[in-house]
Design a protein around this nucleic acid. Structure first.
Lengths: 159, 159
DNA sequence: ACTCATTTGAAAAGGATATTTCATTTTTAT
DNA sequence: ATAAAAATGAAATATCCTTTTCAAATGAGT
């Protein structure tokens, strides 16, 4: 996707900082005409580079006081077990992410919960029910030193 | 924050799904008048429950092909070292998150990079320069089975 | 240099948006 | 039951927005 240039990167960065920016304001900020800005913006959406827009929330103010990173190791994995695994993952709203990773564990999950009790219940009711699980190691976040979903677009594109 | 009710949760959920929804459309979707919707929305922003809005990007289409989870263990930590640690973390645009966690490692980081070469360079130039680091274990994402930043608002609020 | 194709932006137009107002309804407290 | 307080929503309005159009500028190929 080297069809993206520095101006696209700036446009994307602006929308990462404020997803509600209007085309008019974007154009002004980037020093281009509205029409050109509109066309670029449309293109980025059509390319699927911009997938959508969402509100950024304060998890603590919403009662999400516990954030846990869980390392799961599995034994065998029949096809049926894999499908069941996948199904549970997709259905768990408290599970924010699940990655199959290199390293000691097989999966790395990110879980949000109200508190430690709530988290503990989740581990018993959901994680321990996952098929073929042989080990579950929880790492609870004690301090969130940095969290951002702002991608370094320019750097990734090599601009 | 139990001052939030089911309607607030619905409103927030809608804005998690589409952060660009206008008040008019939100109101229609939730079956309330525009004025009421506007007032609730404003309140949620003032309370800091909604912190902002941002575009959701496709990291692969932007050249972010490698996502790594890194476990870092430290030795001692003088005050100066801690400050330096913090500074580097905040300054690293490729570092998306850093949590001080329970468990074997001290910190869990999330890094995005163009490819493995780029990632390797980052580890050498940034992570190995962190003061007091005694161990670095990398877990590269092989398969992103689930990733969402959509918080289960209703559940967290107990509604 | 010349032509054709592409990109650009200023302007226009209609539509949508945020925000206030005020009369009415609903809730609360007594 | 009644009065005071709070919440509601329909309507109004001025502002802002998206999207198209078209003429001019720019670039590419010969």
């Amino acid at each position: 996707m080297s069809q993206l240039d520095k101006i696209d990167a700036q446009l994307i960065d602006s929308l990462q900082a404020d997803g509600r920016l209007s085309i008019a304001k974007l154009a002004e900020r980037l020093g281009m005409s509205e029409a050109t800005c509109w066309r670029r913006h449309k293109r980025l959406e059509e390319l699927g580079v911009i997938e959508g827009y969402q509100a950024t929330l304060n998890r603590r103010k919403l009662g999400g006081n516990v954030l846990a990173f869980v390392q799961i190791t599995c034994t065998q994995h029949s096809e049926a077990a894999t499908a069941e695994f996948e199904r549970i993952i997709q259905a768990s709203s408290r599970m924010l992410s699940c990655h199959n990773t290199t390293g000691e564990a097989d999966f790395l999950l990110q879980i949000i919960a109200q508190d430690l009790d709530d988290y503990s219940r989740f581990v018993e009711k959901v994680l321990r029910q996952l098929p073929g699980v042989s080990s579950i190691r929880s790492n609870i976040s004690l301090r969130e030193m940095k969290t951002t979903s702002h991608l370094p677009v320019g750097e990734l594109l090599g601009l």
